[in-house]
Computed example of a mutant assay.
Amino acid sequence: MVKENLKIVEEKINAACLRAGRSREEVTLVAVSKTKPISMIEEAMDAGIIEFGENKVQELTSKYEVLPKNLNWHLIGHLQTNKVKYIVDKTVLIHSVDSLKLAIQIDKESAKKNVISNILIEVNIAKEDTKFGVYAEDIYPLIMEISKLKHVQIKGLMTIAPFVDEPEKNRIHFRNLRQLNIDIKSKNIDNVHMDILSMGMTGDYEVAIEEGATIVRVGTGIFGERNYSI
């Protein structure tokens, strides 16, 4: 099932890139493997996937320990400061940084392990009460402070768009995030590289690609419905 689903997802990514006049190489597919067993991850690996996303630190670290070390792990869920120490040397990218306090903790733990942690600033672009993330108008002071940290490097922005019945409804949010990314990049802030736009999930990743996403996070579209019982 996973391989068949991946083929469909890949076809949709290619089509979206074609519509947007973009190269397929500009978009990274992160397979969101949260709640999924090792066997399904291995099936995705057999199909050539090496980028995997997890919501929870404990699940990421447990899978990291048993799977090959050539995989790239993305922490895409909300990160608590007391869990930072477990993942700074295991992730290629932390997508969900939305406070200076969290960034400082990532910097501190990264220094201990002599690594530089790549992060994205999570933006609550639609200002939903139920979502984490900084509001667009508050992002500049946060980025200026985080940019001073020596073991953290800002690589771009991430958002979780609203859950909608029609993907087209999220186009405005993706477009606004891309414009915010462009505005920040134009300021040429030291230690800030706005090359990554992580936006778009199973329900709306095609629209996100059309609006400039460089990372799409697809779980259900690859692995099927989530299992919340574990």
Rank of each mutant, 00 (worst) to 15 (best):
E11W: 01
D190V: 12
Y64C: 09
Y205H: 02
V88Y: 02
H193G: 07
I125F: 08
Y86L: 13
K150L: 07
I8Q: 12
Q58W: 04
Q105E: 15
S39I: 11
I116G: 00
D165G: 15
P68V: 03
G203M: 04
Y228H: 14
K112T: 09
A15R: 12
L75E: 03
I38F: 05
G219Y: 02
N181Q: 15
E10R: 15
K90L: 02
Q80E: 09
V2G: 06
G156H: 00
E210G: 11
I106C: 03
Q105V: 04
N191S: 05
I160T: 14
T214L: 10
I196T: 06
P167T: 11
I76L: 13
N181V: 00
I146R: 02
E109N: 08
K34F: 04
L100A: 00
I121K: 11
I76V: 15
A44K: 01
S62F: 04
D138F: 02
C17Q: 09
I50D: 10
I49S: 10
K34S: 06
E210M: 14
K112E: 09
E4H: 12
L177M: 01
G221C: 06
I76M: 11
K85V: 00
I121W: 09
K85Q: 10
M45S: 12
K155E: 01
I8F: 09
K56S: 11
